[in-house]
Design a protein around this nucleic acid. Structure first.
Length: 110
RNA sequence: AGAGUCGCCCGGAUCACCGCGUUAUCAGUGGAUUUAUUUCGACUGGUACCGAGGAAAGUCCGGACUCCAAUGGGCAAAGUUGUGGGUAAUUCCCACCCGGAGUAAUCCGCGGGAUUAGUGCAACAGAAAGCAGACCGCCAAUAGCAAUAUUGGUAAGGGUGAAACGGUGGUGUAAGAGACCACCAGUGCGCGAAGCAAUUCGUGUAGCUAUGUAAACCCAACUUGGAGCAAGACCAUGCAGGUAGCGUUUGAGUGUGCCCACACGAGUUACCGGGUAGGUUGCUCGAAUCUGUAAGUGAUUACAGAUCUAGAUGGAUGGUGAUCUCGCUAGCAAUAGCAAGACAGAAUCCGGCUUAUAGGGCGACUCUUCUU
């Protein structure tokens, strides 16, 4: 689980991140990243739509993503805001999240 | 032993590491405030307690709660519909009545009125489907050698249909017919008995005797103010007005749709344009849960004792691993796979209903067969 400080909590922040040009994809996930210089630790948000499944399935997927993100958060730059969008029902969260985050970090570095 | 009916309950357990949310408490950091380490809120870390369901679901009923300045009468509209009871209340629940299904336990019923209002509809088939009539028949008269034809009588028999003008037997007759008689069935009316009542039983009487449809209009009785926690309250932030209509005691508008009365009453409605869309509260102790006793056929009620049991807001209630005991799928098996595996995730809160549900447990009852 993510600490409250590491979550995206408003509509504005989500909108800004998803408009960002820094993007990456894995078979079941899409990641967006935006740099916010004032932050001291990353903020992460999730978008899990109806495509993924019913209410129970969506919650389940979102929790697995959050736990995986916590373990992989050290990969990200400190001042980044990230949105992860799930696109399919079957998700290997613990395998794909680290790959996604490192891919995003590389793009920032360029 | 087999087949079946009904009701109730459960919806994995234990452990390890890591993590999230509310509350309480301790420590620290920096801030505002004060005579005062006095008060307030913020952040970080530690500890403790608690942290999804039987349906949290559908949002179909009923309430609590909140606001609308929650007035009276009439009309309209909507809803309900056997009787009695239960409840805060109900389109819910219980008991009973009536009708239907089943050998039975039991189940099903959108169950007021079609004979004290009226209108309408009934496909196809059939002669005929509310009122008037007869296709094949049967009988009589007339005509004819005869086959048959015409006129009249008749509704027992045949055939159609979901439904056909009570049924059986007799008397009667040209042939027949409730035309008449006996028994039977139904309906209406009267009387008596049982029941709070729906209704039931008995008895007398009238020759009174086709049906369905009110999930057709309609009629009767009863009920009903509106909007909803995005209700509502407070704080913070921010802006810019313009045009047109109707009005200011000759009264716009509000008080649910229309009308009348009454009350309030100076703005209000539409369009164009602009601003904010952040926080606190409501927010969980309640028609509460569990246990026991008593009353009642039962729904339920009364009393006593014990308990405190989610409160999130981009939205916590979890992730990973192990063991036990289950389940499903595959396989001869060892075993392997599967979100522990079904349905499914609180959002103001309760009471119901409906729908979904892997697998399992308990109890009561009915029928059949066998044994003693």
């Amino acid at each position: 689980m993510l600490a409250a400080n590491n979550r995206l909590t408003s509509r504005d922040q989500f909108a800004r991140v998803t408009r960002s040009s820094i993007r990456s994809t894995t078979p079941t996930l899409v990641g967006y990243l935006a740099i916010e210089p004032t932050l001291s630790s990353p903020k992460i948000g999730f978008v899990v739509s109806r495509v993924v499944g019913g209410s129970v399935t969506r919650h389940r997927v979102q929790r697995q993503l959050r736990h995986a993100s916590r373990d992989a958060m050290h990969i990200l730059p400190q001042s980044s805001m990230v949105v992860v969008r799930a696109t399919k029902k079957e998700t290997d969260a613990h395998g794909e999240i680290p790959k996604l985050f490192s891919a995003l970090s590389k793009k920032v570095g360029r």
